[in-house]
């Protein structure tokens, strides 16, 4: 064999053997069989690249770090264990009148209409939660989650792609995506009858209309409006109206980290803007990471409701041993 082929062949064999273990993009070891990389205490990431938030991102603290089951605003305030009960995790004390750990850290500044609309929503999470068969949440029946709920309940692995005219975000849940326009266009002037202009007819959208720009070398800011008001803001039933305006801020902290902040502007439902997600820390994943499927499937949901959700919510008759 010619000598010039020896090194490449050895390299190929090495890549074949160690490829699944060594993350190509970051050259850090991975647990064999593990899918994600999370933060480690002794890391010193390289500096952030300029004007670049592309890549596959996952909450840096691990799966579940993006959960806001109690409702937006309340992330991280529910680390509570039932005294003396192993395995209780983030469970709440069922004997407490209102589970403290499920109360939002602070309540959003509702208008009268906002509070009334909130109370018309019957959620499966938060301090007003009910059994899943009793909810009027549109999402469990596979209706569109929409934006910003896709990031305000349980942010999952997402891929950000930058093109000359868009920042495109591919979300794991239901394989949904958004295009944030960066071509200089402006948001629809009338968010209650939104359109990009002729020849597009005005229509509200589950995922809204979005434009974005670089605020500085490391901060990308997007603004969105024109939403369909049938979506909720989160799994705890927080409402929004058709005048909702969402500010979405991404700050590239270093090569491996991105912080995401979501601010809600909705004068119909809230008396002032409020931060619904505050610097959720995301970690860059290997470019080779294959994002798993998580589809809401009506047929599967129907089967789950029949087998579990409906009997679990019924008055029932004691049959447990």
């Amino acid at each position: 064999m010619p000598k010039r082929f020896v090194a490449p062949i050895i390299s190929l064999i090495g890549v074949s053997i160690f490829g699944p273990v060594i993350t190509p993009a970051q050259d850090v070891p991975r647990q064999p069989g593990a899918v994600y990389d999370f933060d480690r205490p002794d890391e010193k990431p390289a500096p952030a690249p300029k004007h670049d938030i592309s890549g596959v991102w996952e909450p840096a603290k691990g799966p579940g770090a993006g959960l806001q089951g109690k409702g937006a605003l309340s992330m991280g305030s529910c680390e509570y264990k039932v005294p003396g009960v192993p395995y209780s995790g983030y469970a709440y004390d069922a004997k407490a009148p209102v589970p403290d750990c499920l109360k939002p850290a602070q309540e959003p500044p509702y208008t009268a209409l906002g509070r009334k609309t909130l109370l018309s929503h019957i959620p499966t999470e938060g301090y007003r939660m009910v059994a899943s068969a009793l909810t009027n949440d549109p999402v469990p029946a596979c209706n569109p989650q929409g934006f910003p709920r896709i990031v305000l309940h349980d942010f999952r692995t997402s891929r950000i792609i930058q093109t000359p005219t868009n920042v495109v975000i591919l979300y794991e849940f239901n394989k949904k995506w958004r295009a944030i326009w960066t071509d200089g266009r402006e948001l629809p002037k009338n968010p209650e009858e939104p359109t990009w202009g002729e020849p597009d007819p005005p229509e509200s959208r589950w995922w809204g209309y979005s434009v974005g720009k670089w605020e500085d070398d490391y901060t990308f800011v997007a603004d969105s409006n024109g939403f369909d008001d049938r979506t909720w803001l989160d799994n705890a039933g927080l409402p929004h109206g058709d005048a909702l305006h969402v500010e979405e801020r991404y700050r590239r902290v270093d090569r491996d980290h991105l912080e995401m902040t979501i601010t809600i502007h909705d004068p119909q439902m809230y008396t002032k803007p409020w931060v619904a997600l505050d610097k959720l820390r995301l970690r860059l994943q290997a470019a080779s990471l294959d994002i798993p499927e998580e589809e809401c499937v009506p047929l599967e949901t129907e089967e789950y409701n029949k087998e579990f959700a409906k009997p679990a919510a019924s008055a029932g008759k004691a049959k447990q041993p």
Binding site: L67, G89, S132, P140
Partner: peptide, 23 residues
Amino acid sequence: VVGLLIGSVSLFAHHGNAEFDIG
């Protein structure tokens, strides 16, 4: 570290605890 992270988080993707006899 990964094991600790995975093991210490309850993942409530769809609904909360309302149905369950917690503990």
